[in-house]
Amino acid sequence: MKVAELVEKLELEILGGEQGLDQEISGGYTSDLLSDVMGKAQSGMIWITLQTHKNVMAIASLKELSAIVLVNGARPEADMLAQSGTEGIPVLSTLESTFEISGRIYNILKG
């Protein structure tokens, strides 16, 4: 499934990195610990987190993740948003909690 399709199904807000919306999603990873994502996430995964700083983009880029979903209506810091555009990795936002949105994404990708 492409990032754009997931955005539509879950009514996610697109905050940046629109160039990457046609990226294919290979799976998902939910974590707020950066080394956990660094060690365990696989390329193409969508990353669900409450972290909103620029280092999130560094990890997403190094791991070649497909997109980032910020939970609980969190907004990215300005330099994270700018980096999202540079890398072409979409930063998305939802009002839902980590639990809710992870469950819904799981159902769509694996259900």
Partner: peptide
């Protein structure tokens, strides 16, 4: 910031 979880060295 999500660093310092003691996972980096491993």
């Amino acid at each position: 910031m999500g660093f310092g979880a003691g996972m980096g060295l491993s």
